[in-house]
Nucleic acid binder design. Structure first.
Lengths: 211, 211
DNA sequence: CGCCTATTTGAAAACCGTCAAAGTATGTGG
DNA sequence: CCACATACTTTGACGGTTTTCAAATAGGCG
């Protein structure tokens, strides 16, 4: 996605510095605090980026699907990864060494602009979520997460209650209670490991309610 | 700060596109959702960037002191500001028009790298705060905010209880109760509109406690 | 069919927000 | 210099949302 502005020649150049890497389900690519040697793009499967809290709970910053990049924040500077990355299912990722990536960027300013755009977007999202976590109730936050996910992935969401909880910043039990309510109100359907949005307008209304 | 790598000639060039703007205390520079026409740097005083919640409460994303830039996320792309900016005291800011800023960047790639660094840092901070808001108690979050502020500003922090609360994501009353505890434990001193950290190691211990 | 994981439900407790009221600095105008 | 307004700080009581702990149910895969 970030390389879509490149010519065939440039893509060939890119292919010389990219390597492929397979992952088993649950396998970690890197841990928060690791030295950041690679920059990643998902090829197949699904990868989550998360942070662990002192209480042992984890907070999911984002899921990444094929074509999306991650680990980029650390790759620009010689700093450790600020979060961990774990494969949700068996996956394949492309990776580029830090130095190769940086020298490639120096030759391709339009890619740099694309990356600034992505960083900006992520910063916007993170700051909106901060406001929501600080001020909104669990139901509204969870509705917001579901909306964001449908916008990105369509009406059928392949996530467990626990994953939804870890994205919303609540517990599995509370997520289940809220999701059950949404099911009773015919806003969503759900089965094991899956949620289907059937009434998006009403879901959106929930996020906008002032109380 | 972001321009410190420039030569005198380049700074002269820069000065032709920069204009100065004075602000009264409490005055807003822009509101969340406004069309983003300017990119800003604080010259004098103090500016806060915040988001309003549907409940009317506000969440402070950051305070900016002289030399720091803000409004940059929206300036790169034709998007509205994701947050509002308000002068905390009478202040002076430098501002650069979006188009001028972008054409300046095109000629100065080293400034672009500097900005990527700043965006990355802000993203790291935002994501850490997300984890904290989702998983940590008010006391730990507030201790973390105080630590961050001392690292940046020194041991004496010129903030009211309400400002601390709006940064921590809690209410003024709860912030007061936590701060009073810290005072009783001789970790901080405080007076009206000011907090002084006197036992930083113990403050840091608080943020690391698993419970 | 049996095991593992995901989902569900209930009850109690904790944390924190809300509301109300009062105390205390700071500055301003007379 | 004092009175007064204003904003910041403090305290208490109460209630609600959410977490925690415990246990039971149900779905899917070998």
């Amino acid at each position: 996605l970030i390389f879509s502005s490149l010519s065939d020649d440039e893509l060939t150049e890119l292919s010389t510095i990219v390597s492929e890497h397979s992952l088993n389900s649950e396998q970690y690519l890197f841990w928060e605090g690791d030295y950041a040697d690679y920059f990643y793009i998902v090829a197949q499967g699904k990868v989550k980026v998360l942070k662990h809290a002192t209480t042992g709970k984890e907070f999911i910053i984002a899921f990444f699907s094929p074509g999306e990049m991650f680990g980029e924040v650390a790759a620009f500077e010689k700093k450790p990864y600020p979060a961990s990355a774990q494969a949700v299912s068996a996956s394949v990722v492309f990776r580029i060494q830090r130095e190769d990536f940086i020298s490639f960027l120096n030759k391709h300013p339009q890619v740099v602009l694309r990356i600034i755009g992505i960083l900006s977007e992520r910063l916007r999202v993170a700051q909106s979520r901060l406001r929501d976590l600080a001020a909104e109730r669990v139901e509204q936050r969870l509705a917001g997460i579901l909306l964001m996910l449908t916008t990105k992935l369509g009406p059928t969401l392949p996530f467990t209650r626990q994953e939804i909880a870890d994205m919303t910043g609540t517990t599995t039990e509370t997520a289940i209670r809220v999701i059950s309510q949404l099911k009773d109100r015919r806003i969503i359907k759900s089965s094991r490991g899956q949620i289907e949005i059937i009434d998006e307008p009403n879901l959106r209304r929930l996020t906008e309610d002032s109380h």
